[in-house]
Design a protein around this nucleic acid. Structure first.
Lengths: 121, 121
DNA sequence: CAAATTATCTTGTCACGCAAGATAGTATAC
DNA sequence: GTATACTATCTTGCGTGACAAGATAATTTG
């Protein structure tokens, strides 16, 4: 028997929607200190936000691919003598600009929301 | 000839994604002062946020329907002696609870984002 | 009467988060 | 030596939701 849907799934569904359009910004931001590989980003994000902005690899890899395709990140494979090969991502100049743009956009949106929710109308 | 895609559409696309999961919250909040009808909500929202959180009716009506279906709003038709009939929406008790829940959820998310973006890592 | 305005609803499209599964190498334990 | 767990990547398919576009209808204004 499958467990009933319940509150949790609905709640998770909302978080899911809230992340929409923010993930590219999040990933670009996480690359500002320097290059990183996918698996690393997943753990970094979970750790740094105490799980509030957690993502799975099934979510992250498509994001990274979009960013690469758009020229916002540059890719470098590294095959260590022992261990699984890693794909390192680094911000490009264009990526840095995009990061700025997305940050502004997000801030504008968040401010508008905050102002609205504060209002008694 | 159709105009090329261009920056504007991408940019609009991001706003679009950012609204995801926030619209129900927005609408519920706009109903706190009292009942309102769909068309009214559209203009109200555009006016109060200077277009930052603008929605079209094609977006709003499905949201209202979802809220009605979930029991978060109660519906009342009003047919004035002259003019098009209006469908008035009002918060239910359950809707008020949902509003609180969504507000908390949004705040948590926005705080996590703000904290992350502030960090230099 | 034509055009604009108020008001609602429906259909179809596209993007994206993510669960689930595939693949593969390394390390630990039994 | 084989099972189990961890590191690391990628792919497929599903469901959801914003919104453009179009339909409908009554009223107002030019």
């Amino acid at each position: 028997m499958a467990p009933p849907p319940g509150r949790d799934e609905q709640r998770r569904g909302i978080e899911r929607e809230l992340k929409r359009g923010s993930l590219e910004l999040i990933v670009l931001h996480l690359l500002t200190p320097g290059e990183a590989y996918g698996y690393e980003i997943v753990s970094k994000l979970t750790a740094e936000t105490n799980g509030a902005l957690e993502v799975t690899d099934g979510t992250l890899y498509p994001v990274l691919y979009r960013l690469e395709r758009a020229g916002f990140v540059a890719v470098r494979w590294e095959t260590p003598e022992r261990g699984v090969p890693r794909k390192y991502y680094a911000l490009t100049e264009s990526g840095r600009e995009e990061l700025q743009r997305l940050t502004d956009e997000w801030t504008t949106f968040a401010r508008a929301m905050a102002r609205l929710l504060r209002s008694r109308d």
